[in-house]
């Protein structure tokens, strides 16, 4: 008997009281539902408090981009100055350089670092020996577990002009040593190559998972029809992982101007600043090191909005092209 009780509990208010106005019932029902789920809200509460304090409060604070922030008045009461900080940034001599550097790294990163994991996954997926497959996976993705600090540290020792591995090799081949970490023109290649070195293997895993989900019957059928491996990759594997590729591409676009900020900061030396100073490192220097809070918040907002715009544009393009989209 007790078993039927809870099942009943949800219904009675709807069924036996038809003479009351419909809305009142649904309102009280909703209240009761909310009340009955109170334990779920308790479970959710810590995370909710977290995003309100550490995500939405800073978002509310973004208004200081249009104000002259001072600690006494806080976010709310600091005086408005309109678009002054934006104008100052756009007119500053660093503007072109900083935005240019950011786009350079972002686009270069996207063009080089985005396709490589896909290619690797397609190749690994074709391997016949399960053991070699697993070994390749493990090795290729191990650098993802090395911290950014250590990866940059490795770059500094390996690329060192005095005793580094790479320069020893260059000298052995009869070349002159190159001061990789101290030259503006080497910053971008080193940045992108190290990015591929560290992350390609890890990004590959998602594509491998998507490839594993492809129906093997497709491959068998194609084999019967005499399709070569390349043809099968081109006509079965690639279309099969296309939705995942599209979504990850859109996400990459959405993060285009955010990625790699920590690494760029770590790789900065006074000698390569002309190519290594990107929007986010500029925000860090101007905001936290020189305490120009409002000015740097404005630049940060500029960066976020640019990002958001890119995301929206590419999501729309993907939808027009009938591809998978984020929403």
């Amino acid at each position: 008997m007790s078993r039927t009780m809870p099942a009943k509990r949800g219904r009675p208010s709807a069924a036996p009281v038809p003479q009351l106005p419909q809305r009142k019932i649904s309102a009280s029902l909703r209240l009761r539902r909310i009340f009955r789920a109170w334990q779920l809200y308790v479970l959710l509460a810590p995370a909710l408090v977290y995003i309100l304090v550490f995500k939405y409060w800073p978002m509310y604070g973004v208004q200081i981009a249009f104000k002259n922030y001072n600690p006494v008045d806080g976010f709310t009461d600091s005086p408005w100055v309109g678009l002054d900080h934006f104008v100052r940034f756009v007119n500053s001599y660093q503007f072109g350089q900083v935005v240019g550097n950011t786009l350079w790294i972002a686009v270069l990163g996207l063009l080089v670092a985005f396709p490589i994991p896909i290619i690797l996954a397609l190749l690994v997926n074709q391997l016949q020996s399960e053991r070699f497959k697993k070994f390749t996976q493990t090795v290729l993705y191990s650098p993802a577990f090395i911290s950014t600090v250590v990866v940059v540290g490795i770059m500094f020792v390996i690329l060192s002009p005095r005793s580094g591995l790479v320069n020893n090799a260059i000298q052995l081949a009869g070349g002159d040593p190159i001061f990789f970490m101290g030259s503006a023109e080497w910053f971008r290649p080193v940045y992108v190559i190290s990015d591929v070195w560290q992350n390609a293997g890890f990004s590959m895993i998602v594509y491998l998972a998507a490839l594993a989900a492809i129906d093997p019957a497709l491959h068998d059928a194609a084999k019967v029809d005499g399709a070569s491996k390349l043809q099968r990759i081109r006509h079965i594997d690639l279309p099969g992982i296309m939705p995942v590729v599209t979504i990850l591409f859109i996400l990459a676009i959405g993060n285009l101007l955010n990625v790699g900020f920590e690494k760029a900061l770590l790789m900065q030396t006074p000698l390569n600043l002309s190519t290594s100073e990107i929007i986010q490192t500029y925000v860090y220097h101007a905001g936290l090191q020189q305490a120009q809070f409002s000015y740097s918040a404005a630049i940060g907002l500029f960066n976020s909005l640019l990002n958001l715009a890119l995301l929206l544009v590419f999501n729309t393009i993907a939808r027009r092209a009938n591809q998978a989209t984020l929403w």
């Binding site: 304090v53 550490f54 995500k55 409060w57 800073p58 978002m59 509310y60 604070g61 973004v62 200081i64 922030y69 976010f75 986010q280 925000v283 860090y284 905001g287 936290l288 809070f293 740097s296 918040a297 940060g300 907002l301 960066n303 976020s304 958001l308």
Partner: peptide
């Protein structure tokens, strides 16, 4: 969308 580095620091 997030508030950015500076406002996070201030919070």
């Amino acid at each position: 969308f997030d508030g950015g580095l500076i406002t996070k620091y201030l919070v």
